[in-house]
Write a protein that binds this DNA or RNA. Sequence first.
DNA 1: ATGCCGTGGAAACCACGA
Length: 257
Amino acid sequence: MKIATYNVNGVNGRLPVLLRWLNETKPDVVCLQELKAPQEKFPEAAINEAGYQAIWHGQKSWNGVAILSRTHEIKELRRVLPGDPEDANSRYIEAIVNNVVIGCLYLPNGNPAPGAKFDYKLAWFKRLQQHAATLLAHKVPVVLTGDYNVMPTELDVYKPERWVDDALFRPETRQAFKQLVDQGWTDAIRKLYPKETIYTFWDYFRNAYGRNAGLRIDHFLLSPQAAKHLQAAGVDKEVRGWEKSSDHAPVWIELSI
DNA sequence: ATGCCGTGGAAACCACGA
């Protein structure tokens, strides 16, 4: 079972790239973030045509998340992260696919920090920790994936010293990610590649992709019941070099399920 | 050190992203 995550940065503007990537790599399940489309503007027909069912939670202009499945039925569990009824951002959607719980998330950026946006990021992180603990307690295969907007360690940043005050790399942010992982989750990429420089995002400008000035911010966290099935993981880095690409590249794992 | 680029939506610029 191949599961992928891709921050598309606009699902309609990105549609040709998304469809080409789906057709070339054919993941079984795909989590999308930053749809940047209201609920009724999701390109469902084109996704279906490509062989995928989909559930999604859209939002005008910003955010928006979706789960696609090629081979198995999608049973939606929720489309809101619990813990704050006031939070109207579409940043979380969760479903069971092939007996695996798939949580698709778009964690807030949090800049500028400090400030209200950073406070929102940390509060969202706390809610995610609480919900993740609930998921772990079920002792079933769970895959929590998406754009975490966190570089967990210095190995995940091309120039760590330049990012120390940034919301994606501040000590509070890294600490929150570590607390989450320490509940018992496995960071799939780091489990298989503990020492390698692996990025999932490159800025649009300053030739960041050409210079490999990247960040690793899109992650797969696996519950123990999922982690024991982990076979492979990687980044479809070449997609970032395609015409009209997102600033993120797709990331994927393969489970023996 | 910096939104220098890119997207969407409103309106011919602005918010936002990381």
